[in-house]
Simulated scan of single mutants.
Amino acid sequence: MYNSKITGLGFYVPDNVVTNEDLTKFMDTSDEWIQERTGIKERRWIKDGSEDTSAVMGAKASRIAIERAGLTSKDIDFIVFATLSPDYYFPGCGVQIQNMLDMRTVGALDVRNQCSGFIYALSVADQFIKTGMYKNILVVGSEFHSGGLDKTTRGRGVSVIFGDGAGAVVLSRTEDNTKGILSSHLFSEGAHAEELTVLAPSIRHWVPEILEANDENDESYFPYMNGTFVFKHAVVRFSEAIMAGLETNNLQVSDINMLIPHQANLRISQFIQKKFRLQDDQIYNNIMKYGNTTAASVVIALTEAWEKGKIKDNDLVVLAAFGSGFTWGSVIMRW
């Protein structure tokens, strides 16, 4: 029975830093208001005219991950790309990555699970490796949020939260069943799909309607979030997903060396930390610098924590996420 382990990690964020103070120039907000509600101090937004897109950023992060794995793009057997902000409505970003990295004609799969996208993508890759189908899989999470946000006072409740960026890992086959991904746990509750959503464009609200309406006040094109409702569900589902993983592997909360939560809101992470009585060195947050990068957030945080030496050999690492759908999940791994 094969197991899978992360052999390479990388992330990329645009150079353009947008501080809370910068946002006050075009919306009625303040640094204090944003930090109090989200914990965010700044985020990265792609500059107008930049070459960066979700696929391009994903390719930049992937090159780093592949090099750190000691591989070349020709060694990758499969691609799983998670994003809610693809370059095109279709095709997905996975095939763009295959082309940008000059890979063999390997399969490419796109995952649309928003904030929990990387958890879902990693779990899919894990199963492909454990069944023996593939040896090295590139798993990418990338988001270009800034191009689709309502950057006015009307949209401040959502727009101040999100940032752009990408992360990638190479998941490789190993015969050591004591290391790597021990288990993954995925959940959904579609009854709350419209509590965090972008309603249009969609097949039901498509090009002719867009052209006919041409209404700059139509809020359906911008992200909507029922913040309080989402927060209340997030703190419950985060906990459930983490406990599901620990119980499956006969582990305790005290066994966790590093928890990497989806960077949705610093207040959610702090709630989870307090609930599980984790020390500051047992949880990693970087939303303060990057905002919520959705499908990229977990992998960016994981990579940064590893780069800083906060994750060591044999550590028990827990990844957890909750978001639109609602979908949520966790991955338990032994580093």
Rank of each mutant, 00 (worst) to 15 (best):
Met100Phe: 15
Pro14Glu: 05
Ser146Ala: 05
Val124Lys: 02
Thr38Ala: 02
Arg237Asn: 15
Thr248Ala: 13
Asp280Tyr: 02
Glu307Trp: 01
Ala296Met: 09
Thr228Ala: 11
Gly70Met: 03
Phe326Glu: 06
Thr293Gln: 04
Ser220Thr: 15
Ala59Gln: 03
Gly180Lys: 09
Asp87Ser: 08
Leu109Asn: 11
Leu266Ser: 14
Met103Ala: 10
Tyr134Ser: 07
Trp33Phe: 12
Glu209Pro: 00
Pro14Trp: 02
Val13Asn: 01
Ile256Asp: 06
Val198Arg: 09
Asp28Leu: 11
Ile161Phe: 00
Asn217Ser: 14
Asn226Tyr: 03
Arg63Phe: 00
Arg63Thr: 12
Trp45His: 11
Thr83Val: 02
Phe118His: 01
Leu138Trp: 09
Leu9Gly: 00
Tyr221Thr: 02
Met225Trp: 04
Phe11Glu: 02
Phe11Leu: 04
Arg154His: 10
Thr293Asn: 01
Asp280Val: 10
Asn265Trp: 07
Asn226Gly: 11
Lys5Tyr: 05
Gln114Asn: 08
Ile203Lys: 14
Phe162Tyr: 12
Asn214Phe: 14
Val139Glu: 04
Lys135Trp: 00
Thr19His: 06
Thr38Asn: 08
Gly107Tyr: 04
Ala301Asp: 00
Val124Ala: 08
Asn226Leu: 06
Gly163Asp: 00
Phe118Asn: 00
Lys5Gln: 15
Ile137Leu: 08
Asp102Tyr: 04
Pro223Ala: 08
Val160Asn: 05
Thr152Lys: 11
